[in-house]
């Protein structure tokens, strides 16, 4: 039975498409189930949330499988990871950007898509939010 206390927090670092897909899937499913969901974008993943995001990147070692995977995703009508993230946000997921990485990249809160990013926060804030729940590093 749901206690209303379940919580999952994700640190999204890599930013390659293969890793962003599970970010979308897990956040959508967890919010639908009533989990509190906090997603902290840092590293290379942070650039995916800009008003002008970086283009999709796949890891070199899997590049040959990408067309097949994309074909399969289209066949099962899987939404994009960004659509899933938006769905999760509608249900209450919160998305944060790491203030340290943002500063290092010379980015301000205004540079990020406000429909995606709730706030730019420090790691202390994130750790406090994540406390007592599950944490994934993706």
């Amino acid at each position: 039975m749901s206690s209303g206390k379940d919580k999952i927090s994700m640190i999204v670092f890599s930013g390659t498409e293969d890793r962003l897909i599970p970010v979308g899937v897990i956040s959508q499913a967890a919010t639908a189930l009533g989990y509190e969901v906090n997603i902290f974008f840092t590293g290379w993943a942070m650039f995916k949330l800009l008003k002008n995001p970086t283009p999709p990147v796949w890891p070199k070692e899997f590049e040959q499988f990408v067309p097949k995977l994309q074909e399969g995703m289209a066949r099962i009508k899987a939404p994009t990871w960004l659509d899933m993230l938006r769905e999760a946000k509608k249900m209450g997921a919160k998305v944060y950007v790491c203030s340290m990485m943002a500063s290092a990249a010379g980015l301000k809160k205004e540079d990020f898509d406000p429909s995606l990013v709730d706030d730019v926060v420090g790691v202390t804030t994130f750790l406090e939010m994540a406390k007592g729940g599950q944490v994934l590093f993706i």
């Binding site: 899937v25 959508q28 639908a32 009508k77 899987a78 939404p79 769905e87």
Partner: peptide, 13 residues
């Protein structure tokens, strides 16, 4: 029908 995971459970919710 035709919706991939996690779509069906989301629709149920």
């Amino acid at each position: 029908r035709g919706i991939a995971c996690p779509g069906p459970i989301t629709e149920v919710v």
